[in-house]
Computed example of a mutant assay.
Amino acid sequence: MTDNSALDILKNAILLEKRGQSFYQTAANQSQNSDVREFFETMAAEEVQHVKILSDQFKALKETGKFKTADRSQLSTISQNVLTPEVMARIAAADFEAAAISAAMLMEERAISLYAQRGGETQDPQEKKLYQWLADWEKEHLEFLAGIDAELRERIWNDRGFWPF
């Protein structure tokens, strides 16, 4: 028998990831700079991968009542080559893109919380692995975004003379 709470968690996770993908794609579409647009499109593509993984798990759980073994080959990482110093400078110069980074961090934190909570509650070892894997993936996104945010904040503070010393 299928655990409805597991199905509900997967539905919520899919929705969360789709919202993230939509957000990143909107940020890409709003960006005036092609490099910054590429960064947000990369993030949107990562969220599409998350949706596919979660959808596959949802289908397996609904059909068999069990989670399938996660295929770690689906896991990709954010291309560090996308975020060059030039792109960082363009993000810092654009209030919309900088605000989008902050909003993205909140979305990633929410996803981590959802996955960590469900991973801690479940007794199913495959489900636990799935949510740990996804939480780790989202943590990577959050750390990446937090690094961008910290660098942007320091640049803005330096550029605007906010340092008291």
Rank of each mutant, 00 (worst) to 15 (best):
Q25V: 00
T26K: 13
T26I: 06
A27D: 00
A28G: 02
A28P: 04
A28S: 08
N29V: 04
N29A: 04
Q30H: 11
Q30W: 02
Q30E: 15
Q30C: 03
S31N: 06
S31R: 02
Q32I: 09
Q32W: 14
N33G: 09
N33T: 07
N33A: 04
S34G: 07
S34A: 15
D35P: 07
D35S: 15
D35V: 02
D35E: 10
D35W: 11
D35K: 05
V36T: 03
V36C: 00
V36P: 01
R37P: 02
E38K: 10
E38S: 14
E38W: 07
E38R: 07
F39K: 01
F39M: 03
F39C: 03
F40Y: 01
F40V: 02
E41M: 05
T42D: 12
M43S: 04
M43D: 08
M43V: 05
M43K: 07
M43P: 07
A44Q: 01
A44M: 00
A44R: 05
A45F: 03
E46Y: 07
E47P: 00
V48G: 09
V48I: 01
V48N: 06
V48M: 11
H50I: 00
H50D: 00
H50C: 03
V51S: 01
V51K: 04
V51D: 01
K52Y: 11
K52L: 13
K52I: 05
I53W: 03
I53H: 05
I53L: 07
I53Y: 03
L54G: 04
L54K: 05
L54C: 12
L54P: 04
S55F: 11
S55R: 08
S55Q: 15
D56F: 04
D56V: 06
Q57L: 04
Q57K: 14
Q57M: 12
Q57A: 15
F58G: 05
F58L: 10
K59Q: 15
A60K: 14
A60F: 10
A60T: 11
A60Y: 09
A60L: 14
A60N: 15
A60M: 11
A60E: 07
A60I: 08
L61K: 13
L61I: 01
K62L: 09
K62A: 14
K62G: 13
K62S: 14
E63S: 14
E63G: 08
E63H: 13
T64I: 04
G65C: 06
K66D: 08
K66E: 09
K66P: 07
K66N: 10
F67A: 12
F67C: 11
F67T: 04
F67H: 06
K68P: 08
K68N: 13
K68H: 09
T69R: 11
T69G: 07
T69N: 13
T69D: 13
T69I: 14
A70D: 11
A70H: 10
A70G: 12
A70N: 10
A70T: 15
A70C: 11
D71W: 07
D71R: 10
R72S: 13
R72A: 13
R72K: 13
R72T: 13
R72N: 12
S73A: 15
S73R: 06
S73F: 14
S73C: 12
S73E: 14
L75Y: 10
S76P: 08
T77G: 08
T77A: 09
I78T: 03
S79N: 12
S79I: 01
